[in-house]
Design a protein around this nucleic acid. Sequence first.
DNA 1: TATAATAATGACTGGTTGGTCATTTGTCAA
DNA 2: TTGACAAATGACCAACCAGTCATTATTATA
Lengths: 278, 278
Amino acid sequence: MSKKQLIMESALELFAKQGFEATSVQQITEHSGISKGAFYLSFKSKDELIMALIDHFMEQFVSDIDHIVKDSNNRGEELLRKFFYTTFHSFQKHSDFAKIFIKEQAHTFNEELISKGRHFDQLIDDITLSMLDQLYGETVQHTKYDLIYCIKGFMHVYSHLFLFFNVPLDLDLLCRSLAEKTELLAKHSTIPFITDELYEMFRKTGHEEMTHGQLIEVMEQKIEELEDSIEKESLILLKQDVQERSLNPAIVKGLITNIRNNPHCRWIAYLLLHFYEI
Amino acid sequence: MSKKQLIMESALELFAKQGFEATSVQQITEHSGISKGAFYLSFKSKDELIMALIDHFMEQFVSDIDHIVKDSNNRGEELLRKFFYTTFHSFQKHSDFAKIFIKEQAHTFNEELISKGRHFDQLIDDITLSMLDQLYGETVQHTKYDLIYCIKGFMHVYSHLFLFFNVPLDLDLLCRSLAEKTELLAKHSTIPFITDELYEMFRKTGHEEMTHGQLIEVMEQKIEELEDSIEKESLILLKQDVQERSLNPAIVKGLITNIRNNPHCRWIAYLLLHFYEI
DNA sequence: TATAATAATGACTGGTTGGTCATTTGTCAA
DNA sequence: TTGACAAATGACCAACCAGTCATTATTATA
């Protein structure tokens, strides 16, 4: 395990227990069994550490729910159920992180952190919107933004139960319950509150797209990290294609499916799907 | 304005802008134009200050929505609308406080603060539950706890729009929209997730009832604070009755109505209504 | 006016923080 | 074994924190 990962795991635990501000760098280094200096070799600052944590987990989460929504085997109410399931399952699996994210997103006054939070929030909105379009199409044109907010509200309030009470819960039942509620609202609610203009206004802050160059940079970095494997080979081929656009779309699709096998590549798979507009 | 109030107003502003932990006592005293020593004459600690702020606003909020729900002129969908309206109106009017409450409730690791937050949360749950009983009675027996959570989710997610974007919004439209959604869920959802046992488990932590003695103490303190007025006179009579129980219930009801006229007495009015089980 | 009582001050204390950097330790190839 | 380089250390720093208390200013009373 790299030193960076070691620090991230230690910090995750401490932040979840005590909060970001209340955890000192000293505590993190003691918990990791390294020196203070070593910490600053891996991270330029304490802020950079929490940014890295948020990126790490949110990238995974976003690519996971995107994959569910894009998978054409999931249709109708089942898609809805799987969407909720993936969300809560992820919260459950990474509960330490989820606690930090909920707490620090609400609390922080660091500009960069806020905009990072908002960025991922918007990605999730986009995915949710695409799901609603798939499920209900024209029917929800007027009310789709309100639906997004209701779904967010459901996720927020029920995820609290998972995170702050240590009780074994019936995830399947919860997802069926929420899918039913969402269906009810989608099919029968008639009074929209959030209009297109309002929605645009709320997300006005710049949703900076990733550039072509940045994409290649991220891919190169990941290629370095990977051991020799099908995934690495696929990624190298994809990198060439992003630069030259010479491969058959079917091949590209297959290569992306290959790299998604590796959990550490899911985010890149998500970025590539967007790049190729699949 | 008393020094305590002055400090509370200054602190409110700073906490909303920068957060509780990030605001130093120094800053508060500078902003209030007083010395550090004077601060500690009014509050034993920084923690005591934020507790006082939370009590002040939450007591007002809880007594307000309780009043709406208990008012028998409000019935059916109109009650729902007024319930939401009161909530959002209160958030809007005291937006600085609402920001602090949302942020610090999620974030804090101070035991006392957590239990205070949970205490008010439970009071709001009780009021919501009583509203649902009034509106739908038997119909929602199975799903009432889920309904509470959905309503909380709605309030949470839409209040964000008020608090963190400075846009003039159509409160009436929002409340109609949410009342419709709530009605839909109440009348048609069939799959409950939160059972009685689960609900009990979530709120297990001790909801300590106010004792008889504490109630009289609070009343005596408020009597000291008030100028001579109908409200003060009413409160004195009520205090005697709480001790001796000699007045006609109709008279008691009237006296409580009197004291509710003064905004600073709404919390006591709420406590008395509970005491007399009205 | 004189005295007692109360209110207000701000320099100070002991502690913690994020971050730095001169120094030591470990790891190679030659 | 040597020397060159990188990795790791932890004492140290300046800044800030909540909270204290000897001192001073203000007010009320006699």
